[in-house]
Simulated assay, not measured.
Amino acid sequence: MLLPDLHALEIAATVIEEGSMSAAAAQLGLTQSAVSQAVKRAKAQVNVPLVHRDRRPLVPTEAGRVLVAHIREIALRAERAVEEVRATASRPERQDLRLGMVDTFASAVGPVLIRDLMEGSIALRVTAFSGLAHAHTDALMRHEIDAAINSDPMGELDGLMRFPLFREPFVLVCPVAWGDMLRNRPLRDVLFEHRLIRYSARSHMGAQVERHLRRLRIEHPQVLAFDTSDSLLAMVAGGMGVAITTPLCLLQGAVHFPALAVLPLPSPGFSRELTLITRRGEFDTLGPRIAEAARDMLRRYTLPQIIGQISWLEEMSKDMVWSPASPDAAQID
């Protein structure tokens, strides 16, 4: 179906409003011949008379009156469309982002980061997912998500860009009544006397803790293991044993803080790193900006919460949020 000749219809509507072709020609800056030809084209399109040609000044038919009303409405809508297009162009371009986050980051940092990505200068349309680290690895490789904030850097996979965000030390957590008794005790002695409540072996956190225990040649029976920090910390708060966790994980289970003592992990310590990971060639420009937004949220909102609950971490907190040599710095494989 051919589109209507809106220009001819608009000229015909002007003729009807002005009452003559000469007046319409003067109004539109056209010759009278050009106006006459346009009116003929308009009549051919609608296939009905638009004016009573035997009357002077020209008198519109009922069909002509309907044409004028619709043409003016179309013109108004067109003006609004142009204004909206210009206003949209003046705003930052929006891009869709499907972002996966490990649970602890999602609960502690996710709300402020997602708000900043959607409403701040980057202005993304964000769909967010949370879960265990290995689930985000699979989703990223299957193109089900665009980026992941993960504790597993996926070092064995090629074609990825990695933006380090945050490094946090593992800490020892015990019931508050045990704090003074266990402070500065060797980890081997602590675990000889108390049950270790673990993260499940299928989680990246659990795998990290198990590797650390193997390095220290500490064998400890596996009795209680959980995927989520909230469940693990609830067990510790209830006096079921001790746990090895991180500050972000503690924020996830903040409801249990009053019943917990948080102690430095007996030497040697180890740490967990969180990294923004994207596929190379897809978010090469936005990746550094998203990473810097995440670091900013960590500095402004998360670190003050951590220090407020674990005051002895204040000295090392300055090195917990990664500071790149340049804003675009990334590790590329």
Rank of each mutant, 00 (worst) to 15 (best):
D230A: 10
I114Q: 09
P175W: 06
W178D: 00
V255N: 04
A89I: 07
S36F: 07
R195H: 15
D319F: 12
H256N: 07
E79V: 14
L286E: 00
R55L: 10
A201D: 10
G19A: 09
V51A: 01
T278R: 06
Q222M: 15
D180C: 09
G155C: 08
R289I: 02
L165I: 13
A234G: 12
R279T: 12
L213A: 03
L286Q: 06
L113E: 04
R299G: 02
A201Y: 06
L276H: 02
F166L: 09
L67G: 00
L76M: 15
L160M: 04
A147E: 03
A24G: 08
R214V: 05
E10I: 14
H256D: 09
G110M: 12
Q95F: 08
R41F: 12
P186K: 12
R279E: 02
D5A: 05
L274D: 00
L213E: 01
Q222C: 13
V236W: 01
K43V: 11
P221R: 06
W322Q: 03
L191P: 02
G120F: 15
F163M: 05
I74R: 14
R272C: 00
V176I: 14
I197Y: 03
Q27E: 04
T104C: 05
Q305M: 06
L9G: 02
G206S: 08
V255I: 06
L67Y: 03
I16T: 14
V68N: 09
M181V: 04
I307L: 02
T88D: 07
C174Y: 10
R280H: 05
R300V: 10
H256G: 10
M101A: 01
G110Q: 10
H70F: 05
L182V: 12
H194A: 13
G281L: 03
L3W: 13
A89L: 05
W178R: 14
G241A: 02
G238A: 11
V66E: 11
F226D: 01
A243W: 00
